[in-house]
Every structure is written in C-alpha cells, then in structure tokens.
Design a binder for these strands. Structure first.
Lengths: 336, 336
DNA sequence: CGCAAGTCTGACACCGGTGTCATAATGTCG
DNA sequence: CGACATTATGACACCGGTGTCAGACTTGCG
C-alpha cells in the first residue's frame, strides 16, 4: 500500500500539483479536458487527499469539539445528535470530550485537548455553558465557541437556550390547575444554571396562585436517577405526604415513580409526578411522565450552525436565541 | 491575537526550531539550561503547538473514529465511554460518526469521512462490526480498525466480543428453572449478528430442557423500544398467553413491561419479563428487569486499546477476545 | 596529552497540501 | 491583424511542525 499523494497524481497526469489542487477543490480556470484527465487519474490511483495537510495549509481542521459533563445519557445523545446534524451539513466532524467541571484541572484538561487536536470551535453544553473560568480561557486563546442552554446573558458570544423558567412555571401551574397545592420539588445539580431557573419557575407559579412556598417540600437532587431516588425517599416520608412531585428532570421523576410504585402507591391516583426534558424514559415507563419538552437537539443544532458561520466569518454577528419549551401531559399527573 | 509558532519561540529564545521541537517532545540531548530557557519562553509567549502541523509531520492525527448505527442510546453512550477511556489514556481523541448501514452510500459516506478528517483508526460497533463490505473497503484503504461485538471469526483483525449466545442460554434457562415453558422471544434487528446469537441461545436452552420450539412465540423486533411495543401487542394477545417473555434487549423488554402493566397484568406474578444488555432502564423501572449484563464499556475499551497498539506498531498481533456476560436477576421474573 | 565516544545544536529537507503571482495560451473586438 | 482581456497553467513560497545528518563542543580514559 504505497501512498498516493498530490505529487504522484500530478506526475502521473502530467500536470502541476497546483492544477491537481484546483480540480480537487472545484476551482474555476481549469480546462474541461485537464479536469477530466485529472479526475481519471484520481480514480485510477484511488487518490484520497490528506485532510491534515489540507488543514495545515488552510489553518482549519473542520472538527468541532463538544464539551459536556452531564449524568443524563439521553441529554448527551440528543446534544450529539443536534451537533452532528449541523456539522455534517457543513462537512465538519464532531469530536466529543466529556470532562468534569469540578475536576482539579479543567483548564489544563482543555488546554491538553487543544494541544492534541486542533479544533475549529467548541460547543459548550451545561454546565460548561456557564463556566466563567472556561469562557475567559477560550477568549484569551481566541477559540471560537457557542453556548447551549446557558443562563448568562452575554452579547459577546453565541448562545442558544430554551426558556426553562417559563417551562417550570407552566408545569407547576398545570399541577395547580389539577387542584394540587402541596407540591414537592426536586432540584437539579447546583452547577447547572437550569437548576436555578426551574426552581424559580416553580416558585413563581406558586406565588402567582397564592400558594405559600414551603422549604420543607424542596429536596436537593443533582439530575441523576440515583439522587432522584434519595430525594423521593425524603418526600414520600413527609407528613402529610405531598399530593404531587415536580422533579427537575425526567430521570429523577422516574426514580420517584419507581419508589412510589414500590411503596404500593398508585400514580397518579395517590400522587402525581411531573418531570422535565421529555427524555425517552418519560414515555418508556408506565404511567408516562408529564414533562416539559426541551428542544435539546434543535438548540445544539442552531448553536453549532452559528458556530460554523462564525468560524468562516469572524465578523458575523453573534446571536442570542431563545427557543420555547412545551408542556407534554401524560398519565403521571391527574386531578387531586 | 497574533499567532505564536515554533519559529517565533525559537527566535525569541535564540535557538533553532529543532531545539524547540526537542524540548516540546521531551527528547534527550538538550542541556538543562537550554531546556529551561525554552520552557520559560513557552510560558511567556503562551505557546501551544499546532497539532495539525505535528500531525502532518508525523503522519498521525491522534484521533480515533467511532462508527455506529444503533437505536439504543444507552448502548452508544456506553460504547463512547469505553472508547474515550482508552483514547484519553493514550492521548488520543474520539470522533463520533453515526451513519446508516443500509444507507444508499455507506462506502461513500465513510470515504467522505476519511477525506474530511484523517483518522488513525476506526472502531466498528454493531452492525458495522459484521459488514463485509465495509471491512473490505477499510482493508483496501489500509485503515486500521477494531471490531466490537462481532460474530465473525477473523484472525486478520482486532475483535472483542461477549458471549451473547451463552448469555441468552443462561437467561432462558433461568426462566425455565422458574417453571416457565411457554416463553415468548422478541428478536433484535436482523442486521446485527447479536440477533442470531441471542436467538440461538434461546433455542438451545429450550432444546436442552426438552421444550418444543414454537415459532408462534417468536416476534420480530429491531432493538428499538417502539418495535418492542409492537411485538408485545402480538405476544400478549396470544392464546394461551405465554407465561414469560424474553426480549433481545432491555428497551424492548421495557416496552413489554409497559404494555403488560397498561393491560392490568401484574409483573412478574402474571407474566415474567427478561431483557438483555443491562441498560440503565433495566433498573430505572419497576419492577427492575432481569437481564444479561454485557460488558459494553469494557469491550470497547479493550478494542480501542488494541487498536492504538496496532497503530503504533503495525506488526503487533491482532487479538481476538471474548468476555463473559453475566445474568442479573431482578424483580421482573418469578416462579410460575 | 591525544583520541574516541558521547552530548548538544542547528541547517535543511520534508510531510502534503494551498495561496500568490508570473507567464503562456486563447478569445474578443474594432 | 494588432491590442487587450480572459482563461489556463505552473513555479515557488508557505503552513508549522519533525527527521536526518553533520559539525562543534565535552567528557573519559589509556
């Protein structure tokens, strides 16, 4: 398997390598005859251009990196799927890089990432979207980035978010409209800005309907199924038991459902349960979870799309977009 | 933000770029004084070497590609997590590339991938692990690859699998030992070799215990939750109803559980349900699913580890490894 | 002290493409 | 048919590193 380079193609076709390069990139000013000839040699020698060499010359890798630190697998796959869609549309590829926000050496870690592969841009997903430290580092290094689902308003960088507070408000109001007043809440991971947003939506809905906020009804979770199970235990033991639980994501809601069922409670007759995200599990269990559909793929897709735009033209305006979240009512919530 | 290259560092430090390169790569034969001086300039200028230039010179990208076409998100994230572990250990990065086995242009798709990013190797996950067409293409192109969970015995390439047939045999035997004889089976996607393996394990266990195989009890699934729900409908309508269902993966088993519960059947009292894979959902639902734990992360980790070994030394022996699957009994199966 | 071996360092080609610019070939038009 | 615009092509530097090799400088030891 000897290597076929642009030089061998040029030699074989009897033209200069620049002409081969022109054919390769569909540049104008190549006579049809020459183009044909070169294309034939491509086939004959089974030539594939070397992306690294091309990258060096153009100072581009056509690779976008995706950063995440998230216990929800489904969130991650949705993020990836949206990012990939945008990448492939523009002939980019996606490199994934999970790492810990609280790791002792986040910046070193990212620095190492940038030393081992040159990335044209970075998509930051929660909780990185809100990491001031990381953002400053990227700016200093002059790395393009886009932020997904960040709470920070920042006109100097691309950001696509969904309205978490509004979503949490709506789902809480949904529970209230069903007659619930004693509604427990499970918080998400403190590093995620969504946690505060969703909590705030919950509180605002209570206030709006003159229901006193009761700190006893609030449990600390971290978005993981496991943390949901722990919180569920606390909540189900409360006296009197809340008639509804709103968990900050579907995994934790699923955990509440599992523990309630194990305790011989009927859902939703004995207790209503609501989640957030519309993760696959929300419809894979019975009863299906009432939840808020967050357009994760779409957010990420738009973020990456903007990012690629910015890579090709650094002067393009950096947009801030907010997408709507949508209430999805399933079987896990019912009238009191 | 002006670029800091090896040339500027060399000039600033008053040494040749080769010496800078030596310091960069921790090569011997640099006097401590010179090394110090250069390292100081690195800091001072905030120099980061360009991975693309390095890649060109070394003919390496230090990027591994991961191919998949799989409806199970949890399978994919487990694959990614195992692959990432091995990659990061050796300073590689991971590029993900989902694509369709049956897409009109698989080879063109992969060719395009290789044209847009130079990958040092490829991890093939099911169903690509068994795609003869793809494997021939990669061999022709001289691309290193490793196959995960493939059924094909092939001494010429790296392969790490788990014993699916044995696992299916065990779980079927588990059901039989509980007194079940009318055991329905839901097949996986026909493109996946695991489908045939698991089916075969099911049949062998029946035979071993002198239970006649009944084709009526076999439904065609494709590993997706949705297909499991379709199959579940068929199976639950059978007269008499089977007393147990063994679905080829946990998503389909979860679908059976959901439909059974919706039909007011109690699991496992009225019907036992078993899955395969030990996906997160198996323990996130109630009752938890009896299933086979497949070491997906470990398989992928080992495959990538071998792959990286092969990249650095093409003459290293290509190993074939088989890992054990393990029966996990939860609440979804019980005595007849 | 002299010579061989070992340590440091830099000049230079090279990896495989792309950008710039000069020049040759062809076309257009009065 | 000559002057000029346009198209086609190649020479050459360059992207930012690494590999090879030669030469200068140390060191060890008989």
């Amino acid at each position: 398997m000897k290597k076929v380079t642009i030089n061998s193609v040029a030699e074989y076709a009897g033209v200069s390598k620049k002409t081969v390069s022109r054919v390769l990139n569909n540049e104008p000013n190549v006579s049809p005859a020459t183009r044909e000839k070169v294309l034939k040699v491509f086939k004959e020698l089974d030539y594939t251009p070397n992306p690294i060499a091309r990258g060096l010359a153009r100072n581009r890798s056509f690779i976008i990196g995706c950063l995440y630190d998230n216990p929800s697998k489904s969130y991650i796959t949705r993020v990836q799927s949206g990012a990939l869609e945008a990448c492939h549309k523009h002939n980019y590829n996606l490199l994934i890089h999970p790492c810990e926000l609280r790791g002792e050496a986040l910046i070193e870690n990212i620095e190492h990432l940038l030393t081992t592969s040159r990335l044209d841009g970075l998509v930051l997903t929660p909780p990185f979207s809100d990491s001031q430290e990381l953002i400053e580092f990227l700016q200093k290094k002059g790395i393009n980035y886009a932020r997904v689902a960040s709470a920070i308003e920042d006109e100097t960088s691309i950001s696509v978010r969904s309205n978490d507070e509004q979503g949490a408000f709506e789902i809480t109001e949904h529970l209230i409209s069903l007659g619930h007043t004693r509604i427990a809440f499970i918080k998400g991971h403190p590093d995620h800005s969504a946690t505060e947003q969703r909590f705030s939506g919950y509180q605002k809905a209570l206030a709006e309907h003159n229901i006193a906020f009761d700190a006893e009804l609030v449990a600390e979770g971290n978005f993981s199924y496991h943390s949901g199970a722990d919180s569920a235990k606390e909540i189900l033991d409360l006296q009197p038991r809340p008639s509804a639980v709103f968990a900050s994501n579907d995994y934790m809601a699923a955990a509440v459902l599992k523990l309630a069922t194990q305790s011989k409670l009927n859902v939703p007759e004995d207790i209503s349960i609501a989640g957030f995200d519309n993760a696959p599990i929300a419809r894979h269990i019975w009863p299906g979870l009432t939840t808020i559909a967050q357009p994760v793929e779409e957010m990420t897709r738009q973020a990456v799309e903007q990012l690629i735009l910015q890579i090709s033209d650094p002067d393009v305006e950096k947009t801030q977009t907010t997408l709507e979240a949508k209430l999805i009512v399933r079987e896990s919530t019912s009238k009191l």
